[in-house]
Design a binder for these strands. Structure first.
Length: 532
RNA sequence: GGCGGUGUAGCUCAGUCGGUUAGAGCGGCGGCUUCAUAAGCCGUAGGUCGUUGGUUCGAGUCCAACCACCGCUACCA
């Protein structure tokens, strides 16, 4: 996939009634880091996020505020866009499901599936919570003893006419797919979950809702039957396709990875690919291949506690902005990326942990190392890096260490492990610190005879740091752009800051740092906060 | 109930196809160093790798059972 030089990453489109919180920002930041990395590699990159707007409750929320659904959705979608801009997200598009470009295309997709018989009219019967106006899954209904947990009133048996997607037909093809492509659903534990559930058997899924007389029109009408609207989930999934279903963008398809949280795995790993398999057989849609990967991360908890509405302990935008203000946006991004719930377990967003990681990884290890190297260069070499002496062994191991770090970081990014990529870069920085201790350039500098050695050592340290900065740049574009500027790579830094395309492998070539380049110290990249 | 996952040093976690003395970061302790954001480096931690029993020449790494915690079990982005 990388060989094709194309990368298409998506986040879920976010429920427009929600206030943005750490969950939204986390997934979106991960996508951003991947997108920036692939742009740095020079790949044709497309990064999509957006809002899901056709839920019934959007109508209610809007009405409660005396607004039309359109107005309410637009206001909240703008909120998400502002938030993402504030946190350095470099998405290439922001799709809203109420936009005509989406509505029209979804009608076409579902129309094609109706035509082919993959979608058919039938009856749905199940337990219904009249207060919540939603069906309750069988298992949960039993667990609740057939009463609404909200109102306490009994659930009722209800039947309605619906359009169904013939999911039951796709169990075997999906299993074959999951067998043949072990990384289709990641992490592996999630793939196991999905396969286990598919083996239990698949039922057809209703994909429409009755449109009640007199209600405001909200949602995408079922093609050929305006008495139904397409169920919001189905509508939403198609955003990944509709956003790039244009002559200019079709080449981005299929998605390289759908980043999601674990709660919406079933839709992305089963229903969505099944619908695409079905659609693909329809005339004119043979180009619609399946996404390459679906990656489901876990949740953040807050100070050791599950985030919940009742506890009111969501890590919300205000709180996140407070961290960004105090420690810098990049520090927040670094924390999210390296300490987040990428795996199967939830991760804790705790103040103490944040302060700790910031101090040890960013201030002490990275910031201090950059400063000491620049400072010694200023003090002993007049501020300019010297030409290294190839015959001088001092700190010679750094070149190989840098090479390993680059290989590791690139491989980690390829397997969707940006945390490991950052770790590889930090290891390289630690190697620089160790090399300084070992070779002691500050001691050698006292002897004028050994100036050449000092120059060689500091050149190698600076070069390793420059490369570490490049590897950390997707996570911390602003601070690493500044570090690169100080280390004589201002142009690259500017491109990184702007989220532009580049040529990472060339940038990471050892020896690119030109002898004679002036290094700058400047104020701390990551100031300590013990005083604050 | 069914399916799946996790249980490794005080904390957060790595441990590829089973193979010499079980690893990292952080913390703690001891030492070294002074170029640096009181930063850095080195050495330490005597960890029954949840328990029990198997397979094997050999298991943290495979199998079984059990214990603890967690996730999923179809319409809550």
């Amino acid at each position: 996939m990388a060989a094709r030089g194309r990368f298409y990453v998506t986040t879920p489109i976010y429920y427009v009634n929600d206030r943005p919180h750490i969950g939204h920002l986390y997934t979106t930041t991960l996508a951003d880091v991947l997108a920036r990395h692939h742009r740095h590699l020079g790949e044709d990159t497309f990064f999509l996020t957006g809002t899901d707007e056709h839920a019934v409750k959007v109508v209610e929320s809007a009405a409660g505020r005396g607004l039309t659904p359109d107005e309410w959705a637009a206001r909240n979608a703008a909120e998400f866009q502002r938030a993402f801009a504030r946190f350095g997200i470099s998405n290439d598009d922001f799709i809203r499901t109420s936009e005509s470009r989406h509505v029209e295309r979804v009608a076409r997709y579902v129309g094609a599936l109706l035509e082919s018989g993959d979608v058919y009219a039938g009856d749905y019967e199940g337990w219904y919570d009249p207060g919540q106006e939603e069906y309750v899954p069988e298992g949960r209904a039993r667990e609740w003893e057939y009463r609404s947990p909200i109102s306490g009133r009994p659930l009722v048996r209800r039947r309605e006419q619906n359009y169904f997607f013939r999911l039951s037909a796709w169990g075997d093809p999906l299993l074959e797919l999951l067998e043949a492509r072990p990384d289709f659903v990641l992490p592996e534990a999630r793939r196991n979950e999905v396969m286990g559930r598919i083996r239990e058997g698949l039922l057809d899924v209703p994909i429409s809702r009755c449109h009640e007389e007199g209600e405001p029109r909200w949602g995408i009408p079922m093609p050929g039957d305006p008495s139904h609207v397409i169920y919001v989930w189905i509508d939403a999934l198609f955003n990944y396709l509709s956003a790039v279903d244009t002559d200019e963008r079709r080449g981005f398809w299929p998605p390289s990875v759908h980043l999601i949280a674990k709660d919406i795995l079933w839709f992305h790993a089963v229903i969505w690919p099944a619908m695409l398999l079905a659609l693909r057989r329809c005339p004119g849609f043979d180009w619609v291949e399946l996404p390459e990967r679906v990656y489901a991360h876990s949740f953040w908890i807050s100070e050791g506690q599950k985030m919940s509405k009742s506890l009111g302990n969501f890590v919300d935008l205000e709180r996140l902005e407070a961290y960004a203000d105090r420690f810098g946006l990049d520090a927040l991004r670094f924390f999210l990326v390296t300490q987040g719930p990428l795996g199967t377990h939830d991760a804790d967003f705790a103040e103490a942990r944040f302060v700790h990681v910031y101090a040890s990884e960013l201030a002490n290890t990275l910031g201090n190392c950059a400063h000491r190297v620049a400072h010694m260069t200023g003090r002993y070499l007049g501020g300019q890096v010297a030409a290294p002496d190839p015959s001088c062994p001092a700190a010679g191991g750094l070149e190989a260490a840098a090479g390993r770090a680059v290989d590791e970081a690139l491989a980690a990014m390829e397997r969707l492990a940006p945390d490991r990529a950052c770790a590889a870069a930090l290891d390289l920085v630690r190697a620089v610190n160790a090399a300084i201790e070992e070779t002691r350039p500050f001691a050698l500098a006292r002897d004028p005879e050994r100036r050449g050695e000092v120059g060689t050592i500091l050149y190698r340290c600076a070069e390793a740091l420059r490369i570490a900065a490049l590897l950390l740049a997707p996570a911390m574009p602003e601070r690493m752009a500044e570090l690169l500027r100080r280390f004589g790579a201002a142009e690259i830094g500017e491109r990184i800051r702007a989220g532009a395309h580049g040529e990472l492998r060339e940038w990471c070539r050892w020896g690119r740092l030109a002898p004679g380049t002036a290094l700058e110290t400047g104020p701390p990249l990551f100031p300590r906060h013990d005083a604050a």
